[in-house]
Amino acid sequence: MREMINMVIVLTVLSAFSGGLLAAVKTGTKEQIEQQVLKFQKAPAIKQILSDVSNDPLQDRFKIMDNDQELTFFVGKHDGKPDSVIFETSGKGFSGDIGLMVGINIDSDEIIGVCVTTHSETPGLGSRAKDDPKFVSQFAGMKMDKNLDIKKNGGEIDIMSGATITSAGVSLAAKKAQEIYTRLKPEIEKQTAQMAN
């Protein structure tokens, strides 16, 4: 009996100590990790979508609280006029979440382009969503009222063969982006108008 209690105590204390240490390290590195993700993952995706802007979208950004979630919007300007926003959504892929950057033109409400940022899909199959521009290029030019689901679910997007679930995940993220954009449009317009100068 004593031996058993001893085991329980040792394991409990060890786990508690481990939990505390990890919480401390997690808090300590949070900001730095956010910056690194911005620099190495979001920046390339943003550049790919908004290749011809006259400003640096990484600098011109604002945040909007959507329910409990804080969303960061990156603003792209053409000839000094802020006319596009980019933000990140996510959809459920084959193994974990797929992060998707979605760029939208504010004037025409059209998707400029989308780009996968983070994913843990199968290399060679699902990973094509990021590596092969053919699939994501289907989203470009879509209006907000288009159904961005995959064709099997009644939408307009062709899947990548061998990666149905990944395709559906990307579609879901794009649909979420449509929803968020439509819902937050007044706020987005207000914020971007302030950036015109």
Binding site: L21, V25, K26, Q32, Q36
Partner: peptide, 16 residues
Amino acid sequence: ATFVTVVELVMQAYTY
């Protein structure tokens, strides 16, 4: 596992 997670977080923060 604790130390591995520490390494993972630190690498993520400094050698992304």
